[in-house]
């Protein structure tokens, strides 16, 4: 962890909002690069859906959005109880 000593309080890497912004920029660009790589790489295809451009990217994204929405709006109202429910 790179941290430069600043007077009294230590400053840590994510205390500086700029670093977070940089990290996110790198991350978003990686997403774009890998989405584009789909076109250039030779694919061993077994299933039809693998032929669709960006199938894995879209599937990964949609899967996680569905996962979060289902957990939050369907599962949580069904199963969530107070912390001391069993006590």
């Amino acid at each position: 962890m790179s941290n430069n000593t600043n007077q009294e309080e230590k400053k840590y890497i994510f205390d500086n909002p700029k670093n977070l912004k940089r990290l996110l920029t790198v991350f978003y660009s990686l997403c774009v690069v890998f989405f584009a790589l789909d076109i250039f790489v030779y694919k061993h295809i077994y299933f039809d859906s693998e032929k669709w451009p960006g199938f894995y990217s879209v599937y990964g994204f949609v899967a996680c959005v569905v996962l979060v929405l289902v957990s939050k709006y369907i599962l949580r109202p069904l199963v969530m109880r107070k912390e001391d429910y069993y006590e």
Partner: peptide, 19 residues
Amino acid sequence: ADHVIFQLQILLFSALAFT
């Protein structure tokens, strides 16, 4: 090559969804 790229695509876009 395709396995590595597919796997990274899934992981990156899962992370994108989280973010």
